[in-house]
């Protein structure tokens, strides 16, 4: 990520057990706050290339309402 120039803070690794629901919620909330600060994904135009070309044309064909 550093090499690619992507802010490292966009990767988070945390161990949470299934019984630590409150911890999970707090972690996600703080992460979402941080991501909002960091702004939009700078690489968002790159992903379409990777998709299975057949799927990609399907998805592009039907833009379902409200999606």
């Amino acid at each position: 990520m550093r090499l690619l120039g992507i802010d490292e803070r966009r990767l988070r690794l945390k161990w949470v057990s299934a019984s630590e629901g409150a911890l999970f919620a707090a972690e996600i909330q703080s992460y979402v706050e941080l991501l909002k600060e960091l702004g939009d994904n700078p690489l968002s135009d790159a992903h379409l290339c990777q998709m299975n070309p057949m799927m990609r044309s399907e998805m592009q064909k039907e833009e379902p309402a409200g999606a």
């Binding site: 090499l3 690619l4 120039g5 690489l43 135009d45 992903h47 290339c49 990777q50 299975n52």
Partner: peptide
């Protein structure tokens, strides 16, 4: 599609390089 090795990490890196980014 081909069976990508190393979970496609090299293919992903070059894919990301097609975007506007500033490498370090």
């Amino acid at each position: 599609l081909p069976q990508e090795s190393h979970h496609g990490v090299m293919q992903t890196i070059s894919l990301l390089q097609t975007a506007k980014l500033t490498q370090s």
